[in-house]
Design a binder for these strands. Structure first.
Length: 532
RNA sequence: GCGGGUGUAGCUUAGUGGUAAAGCUCCAGCCUUCCAAGCUGGCUAUGUGGGUUCGAUUCCCAUCACCCGCUCCA
């Protein structure tokens, strides 16, 4: 969005989505449900169009690689529920959710692993006057000293041991040594320690809550009886279904490294706070491709997919400077990407993130983390034997992982174009390949030969294109309706059509009209909506 | 998860402790030769659940959803 372009109002976009049948609140008649959305008749067309274009770019007609050779990518469609061991191996069961600590007084929330407790060497849990100040990691020493004085904590920093807040409970007081030592069982005392803490932003003792664990994954139960032994998870990403099938794909097809496996499907995450329409929802759809390559070629392929994926988003309509690439900082890298070449996001400036950007797609170097983990946990050998060099190695993975549902939102917001000069006040400038309806057939009036000819044309086109026939009401209303849903072309039948077999074509963005032979309408559409 | 705000028809708004009003949209019909025109008619609403009351859309409580800010976002 340039500075002088009209602001795109998220409220209006959400309203249009509902009014015209793109996106509805899930369970709308029951008052909705936080974090879930339904796609209506036009929304599902738009989403499917975007999905199919991605699949075409990645699987059906993949690009030429950096070495001039066509790249090879195959698809899978794995189950949403897998053996729970798969999620233990991938690390999703263990430690992805960061425990959080709340301050009851200030209502502030902290990441538990960022909190540091200061324990004086002479700390005596039996003495009520002994406090444990807690600070955020990286708090400057002078601030800490100042706070010490304020709360009557009579020690210097140098006299204290710093202990991660989350490990506080592991510390107990051992009289024999007069020191704080790590003990396995200190259940009798850890509660006392917690009650002595003073949070970073308060002077009151004991306002910090226990660390709360947030589970990333949805739980479910297999079978009718439930019970912990039947516990399973809904996948939080489609990627693992690909890794689980790595060996099956190698054994059943003739692909060789380097190659890719792609998958599109639903994923589920228990977002703490769903927000911003469909941007952060608990059920969403991903388009992921895992590219398996030799470790030495990881850099080459990462750069290739960085460029390739940007091309995609630009080609289907995100042409503005609302799209950008951004390398992750070291501290925001995920566990698997830390050792590798890092992660870069393709980001879009959504109205609700502006002037910031929100992630649309992440391109990560996952190294050999996933295959190694699954090999370890499953006991199945997943190394690759290069048939030419006879070299045995664990392939590295470059992963372009895009949000399909976020893509839909980006498409809608990018296309949403307020235009006070036209009756609808707005139109959707969707790429014709993405538009839910490619054209509308409109008899100028509902009498004489107009509807007859229009119906005939509609019957011819509907076998090949998603087209609408709209006869009722005046022509301006019908143009306006099509503008709002982003239909790129309207063919109008009038008296001249009866005389010379021509129709007018109205182009959505310019509202300009030209006259073409009715016999050429199909070819006209074919040419103009050609997929990117 | 915290704090603040908002909930009356598809949308925008009105109103009231006693039958809930209008414009636009939508639908049907008439009219209409190119951009939501006109005429006639029609559908549709007090987010949900409690409480107070003879009676609650209105007052109270809870809850849900959405918006803003914080927090979070492997």
């Amino acid at each position: 969005m340039t500075a002088d372009a009209p602001m795109k109002d998220m409220k209006e976009i959400v309203a249009l989505c509902k009014r015209r049948g793109f996106i509805f609140p899930a369970s709308d008649i029951y008052g909705g449900i936080n974090g879930f959305w339904d796609y209506g008749p036009l929304g599902v067309e738009l989403k499917n169009n975007l999905r199919d274009l991605w699949w075409k770019w990645m699987v059906t007609c993949p690009p030429i690689g950096p070495d001039g050779q066509p790249v090879e990518i195959v698809g899978v469609d794995s189950a949403i529920i897998q053996n729970p061991k798969a999620w233990e191996a991938s690390g999703h069961v263990g430690g992805f959710s960061d425990p959080m600590v709340d301050c009851r007084e200030t209502k502030l929330r902290y990441r538990a692993d960022h909190l540091i407790a200061y324990l004086p060497s002479t700390f005596d849990p039996k003495d009520d006057s002994n406090l444990i100040p807690v600070f955020m990691q990286g708090t400057p020493d002078d601030e800490i000293e100042k706070k010490f004085k304020k709360i009557g904590f009579h020690f210097a920093i140098s006299q204290c041991e710093t202990v991660p807040f989350v490990e506080l409970e592991k510390y107990g007081y051992v009289e024999d040594y007069g020191l704080l030592l790590l003990r396995k069982d200190s259940s009798a005392k850890h509660k006392i320690l917690k009650e002595r803490t003073v949070g970073p932003d308060t002077k009151t003792v004991g306002t910090l809550t226990e660390p709360k664990q947030f589970n990333l994954m949805f739980h479910t139960f297999i079978g009718a009886t439930g019970g912990d032994e039947n516990k399973a998870y809904l996948r939080p990403e489609t990627a693992q279904g690909i890794f689980l099938n790595f060996k099956n794909v190698l054994d059943s097809t003739r692909v060789r490294v380097p190659f890719g496996i792609a998958q599109i499907g639903k994923a589920f995450r228990t977002e703490v706070n769903p927000r911003n329409f469909i941007f952060r929802s608990r059920e969403f759809e991903q388009m992921e491709m895992e590219w398996f390559c030799h470790p030495d070629e990881a850099k080459l392929w990462r750069d290739f997919w960085f460029a390739e994926r940007q091309k995609f988003w630009r080609a289907i309509g995100l042409r503005s400077d609302n799209l950008r690439m951004r390398d992750h900082d070291q501290d925001e890298l995920s566990h698997y990407a830390k050792a590798g070449l890092g992660t870069a996001d393709i980001e879009y400036r959504f109205p609700f993130t502006a002037p910031d950007f929100g992630e649309l797609e992440g391109i990560a170097h996952r190294c050999d983390f996933d295959l190694t983990q699954h090999q370890k946990h499953s006991g199945v050998k997943l190394e690759y034997m290069d048939p030419v060099t006879q070299e045995k190695f664990m392939p590295h993975v470059i992963e372009p992982a895009a949000g399909l549902t976020r893509g839909v939102l980006a498409m809608i917001t990018e296309a949403y174009t307020p235009d006070p000069s036209r009756p609808s006040g707005v139109y959707l400038d969707l790429h014709p390949a993405l538009a839910p309806k490619k054209a509308a057939i409109l008899p100028l009036t509902a009498k004489d030969q107009h509807p007859v000819i229009a119906t005939k044309l509609y019957m011819e086109l509907r076998g090949e294109f998603a087209v609408d026939l709209d006869i009722k009401q005046n022509i301006g209303k019908r143009y306006a309706r099509q503008d709002e849903i982003g239909t790129p072309y309207c063919f109008t039948i009038d008296d001249q059509t009866v005389a010379d077999q021509t129709v007018t074509v109205r182009e959505r963005n310019t509202m300009k009209q030209e006259r073409i032979a009715i016999a050429n309408v199909a070819e006209y559409l074919r040419k103009n909506i050609r997929a990117v």
